[in-house]
């Protein structure tokens, strides 16, 4: 997010629906941690999106090889905290310096591995959607559902 709290990193013009990969990260048994998957579920019957989708509990090393096949990639994940619009687009930068805790890779580290091992540089973005509840429960909280709709609306504007 930039200093003004707006979503200026929207990937306008970069999402080629035919060669775009959406990666939903999360776990739908953990309430709002399922936001990434719920985003993909919502696109399932939406004909305007012709790209590919992948569900992930965590990003892993082989995802570096996967995203090397695409022109653009969006990582959609739940966000713990408040966001002004309920969601946030960010340009994903390759993270040469990995986080100290590496059991689950960040989008940036996957992008780094993609560039380093496969010499590919897809345009990559993260779409964080704010959630409230993280316990063992199926279904999204009311606020998360609203935030999800806002995020979907933003995404659809970019595609259509």
């Amino acid at each position: 997010m930039n200093a003004t709290g707006t979503n200026q990193a929207r990937p306008q013009g970069l999402l080629n629906a035919r060669n775009t990969l959406l990666v939903g990260i999360g776990n739908n048994s953990r309430a709002d941690d399922g936001l990434g998957w719920a985003f993909l579920d919502a696109l399932e019957n939406w004909p305007d999106f012709e790209g590919d989708i992948e569900y992930r509990y965590q990003l892993q090393v082989e995802d570096a090889a996967l995203i090397a096949n695409y022109d653009s990639v969006v990582f959609i994940d739940a966000y713990q905290g408040a966001l002004p619009e309920g969601f946030r687009w960010e340009v994903c930068q390759p993270a040469a310096r990995f986080e100290f805790s590496t059991h689950a890779l960040s989008p940036g580290s996957v992008l780094f591995l993609c560039q380093d091992l496969y010499q590919a540089s897809p345009a990559a973005f993260t779409l964080a959607v704010a959630g409230d509840e993280w316990g063992l429960k199926e279904g999204l909280s009311v606020r998360a559902q609203a935030n999800l709709q806002h995020a979907l609306h933003s995404f659809r504007e970019l595609i259509t």
Binding site: I25, G26, N27, S29, R30, D33, Y57, Q58, D77, A78, Y79, Q80, H103, A104, S106, T126, A128, G131, W134
Partner: peptide, 8 residues
Amino acid sequence: CATHAMGK
């Protein structure tokens, strides 16, 4: 490990 969110 089955729950997480960015940056935590």
